[in-house]
Design a protein around this nucleic acid. Sequence first.
DNA 1: CGTAAATCCGGCAGATACACCGGATTTAGG
DNA 2: CCTAAATCCGGTGTATCTGCCGGATTTACG
Lengths: 249, 249
Amino acid sequence: MRRRDRHDDDLELFELLANLEEIAEATRIPALLCRLLEIYGLKSVAYLGSGLAAQPGQGPYLAVTYSDDWVDHYKAQRFVDVDPAVQIGMRRMLPIDWDTFDRRDKNVRRLFGEAAEFGLGRRGISLPVHGQHGDRALVSITSDASDRDWRHLRLYYMRDFQMLALHMHQAILRLEGQRVETASLSPRERECLLWVAEGKTAWETAIILGLSEHTVRCYLESARHKLGAANNTHAVNKAGKASLLSQIP
Amino acid sequence: MRRRDRHDDDLELFELLANLEEIAEATRIPALLCRLLEIYGLKSVAYLGSGLAAQPGQGPYLAVTYSDDWVDHYKAQRFVDVDPAVQIGMRRMLPIDWDTFDRRDKNVRRLFGEAAEFGLGRRGISLPVHGQHGDRALVSITSDASDRDWRHLRLYYMRDFQMLALHMHQAILRLEGQRVETASLSPRERECLLWVAEGKTAWETAIILGLSEHTVRCYLESARHKLGAANNTHAVNKAGKASLLSQIP
DNA sequence: CGTAAATCCGGCAGATACACCGGATTTAGG
DNA sequence: CCTAAATCCGGTGTATCTGCCGGATTTACG
């Protein structure tokens, strides 16, 4: 990968971040990913977003630099069920080096073997991103760096792409329109919802909070109305995604 | 702040990250924060974690470098209700520069005025961290850098502390023991929970999935059992926090 | 000094959830 | 081949939720 002067790369990173904040059309994303390839000397960059639409049944959001052939093949072979980058990466908080994956599984070896044939690098990192509303993303990069280079490079990649992944996710959320309904709950409404979310009944919640059961029902009702929720379950889910249940108020 | 040679700082960053992964006692956290002060030439570093314990009613987790006096005063004055770093920062995804806060509010000006008296820097950044289970954190740093220096420094601070904040949160989660009950739901169970979370009744869910209402009830029941949940609301909440409702798998 | 919002309380009818009972076939893996 | 798990279906009694009716005081704000 021929990493250029460090300071130049830093400036380029900050420029990229600024670009991501200004980007106005989702169609520009792939071109921006390709710029990443050049700047960082990578073999591939991929963004996989999940839970962006707030409605279930929606497919994941995908933006990649590699060929459609590989994407089609990946989908046809249902590699997503096997791919440790997705299965493990999506369930982590910290970035992960693909070298740490267990390749004893036959299917996993086949996946990485065929990936190489389609032009992906031998080395890879996946960086998980966690949004505020249950939305998630995984930014994966691959490289063909030598073993010796890779040990150092991956740290720098992790650092820069930690920011890039976050800003990328933010940009895509902005463009793909995650509706952010902001309702404000009163402290009591929030408390009641909090305990209902823990599986307590209205009666139990009343005991816990030292209220009458009827009062708890009233708070839950007004909370449902504020949130536009069909029932308590829906209200808990909506309030949770709107981070209204965090105890920080 | 006299930033030293860039490469040295980079190595120090990676060393700090390694330290965070190895840290075995929560009592070591403050000392590590103090090392950050020295290395980066900051006035203060603070970690505020929320939702770590999975049970409501638990207070936030706090680790700071500034004096107990300021913490006590902050709590006594209920500054948390006013503090834009917390109120805005905790509801964002990207880091935020304190310069962008609206200081027209009388209480906000008083907060920052008194903060300076207690030894916090005039400049500040807050970096939000989002965990997998609804847990959150806010890492805030302050500096007394000059206006000219600050414009550049904050970008480098944001980059390094993006990683540091994430690793810090991971370390504290590991130490403060967030129990991660792992139940595995079948695809159908997950689908049913997903629609119930959207406020659908069992009957509506049955229509949507093309099943009988009774079958949906059965899936919900087994899901509740697997998750150890008292009712559907609890199950949705638990499954959501265990990231079992993401449509990826 | 109104007004709005938050905090509280009671009751009732119908819809829904929940637990526990029973049955079936298909599929994956040891 | 056997077992476990996943996929499906039906019924019943009781607990709980939900919506809608009525009331009250306190607090904050302009």
